[in-house]
Simulated assay, not measured.
Amino acid sequence: MQATHPIGVFDSGYGGLTVFKSIADKLPQYDYIYLGDNGRAPYGNRSFETVHEYTLECVEWFFKMGCPLVVLACNTASAKALRTIQQQDLPHMEDPSKRVLGVIRPTAEVIGNYTKTRHVGVLGTKGTINSGSYEIEISNQFPDIEVHQQACPIWVPLIENGEHNSEGADFFIKKYLDELITKAPQIDTVLLACTHYPIIIDKIKSHLPENIKVVAQGDIVADSLEHYLQRHSEMESRLTKNSTMQFFTTDDANDFNAHASAFFGRPVQSNHLAI
Rank of each mutant, 00 (worst) to 15 (best):
178 D>H: 13
268 V>C: 08
50 T>Q: 13
121 G>H: 13
155 W>H: 06
52 H>V: 09
7 I>C: 06
260 A>S: 08
12 S>E: 08
95 D>T: 06
104 I>G: 03
234 E>A: 09
106 P>S: 09
212 I>A: 09
36 G>T: 06
55 T>Q: 04
147 V>P: 02
48 F>A: 11
63 F>K: 04
230 Q>V: 07
243 S>R: 14
227 H>W: 05
117 T>Q: 08
104 I>F: 04
235 M>V: 15
222 A>S: 13
120 V>F: 04
17 L>E: 03
215 V>P: 02
59 V>N: 04
54 Y>S: 05
240 T>K: 09
118 R>P: 00
171 F>V: 15
223 D>R: 13
190 V>K: 05
194 C>G: 05
242 N>K: 12
198 P>I: 14
220 I>Y: 09
159 I>C: 05
148 H>Q: 12
84 T>Y: 09
189 T>F: 01
170 D>E: 14
28 P>S: 13
221 V>L: 11
118 R>K: 15
212 I>Q: 07
222 A>C: 07
86 Q>C: 11
143 P>N: 07
183 K>E: 09
248 F>Y: 15
118 R>N: 15
10 F>G: 08
29 Q>G: 07
250 T>Q: 04
150 Q>F: 08
36 G>D: 03
254 N>V: 07
161 N>Y: 00
246 Q>N: 14
80 K>T: 04
26 K>T: 14
35 L>K: 10
115 T>P: 03
188 D>S: 10
94 E>M: 09
40 R>K: 14
154 I>V: 08
230 Q>N: 14
114 Y>A: 11
68 P>T: 10
250 T>L: 02
108 A>K: 11
266 R>L: 06
251 D>A: 15
245 M>Y: 11
158 L>W: 03
178 D>C: 06
20 F>H: 04
140 N>W: 07
212 I>G: 04
114 Y>N: 12
49 E>P: 03
41 A>T: 14
115 T>W: 00
236 E>C: 12
100 V>S: 02
19 V>G: 01
164 H>S: 10
174 K>M: 08
218 G>D: 10
117 T>D: 04
175 K>V: 03
204 I>T: 10
118 R>F: 03
212 I>P: 01
208 L>Q: 11
114 Y>L: 11
86 Q>I: 13
241 K>C: 08
107 T>R: 07
114 Y>G: 11
35 L>T: 11
91 P>I: 14
271 N>C: 07
249 T>R: 01
33 I>E: 00
99 R>S: 10
129 I>T: 01
218 G>H: 10
258 A>V: 00
4 T>H: 12
227 H>T: 13
123 L>F: 08
272 H>F: 13
220 I>T: 15
30 Y>E: 01
232 H>R: 14
255 D>M: 12
162 G>W: 01
173 I>V: 15
30 Y>H: 06
203 K>M: 09
65 M>Y: 00
39 G>R: 05
200 I>K: 05
77 A>Q: 12
57 E>M: 07
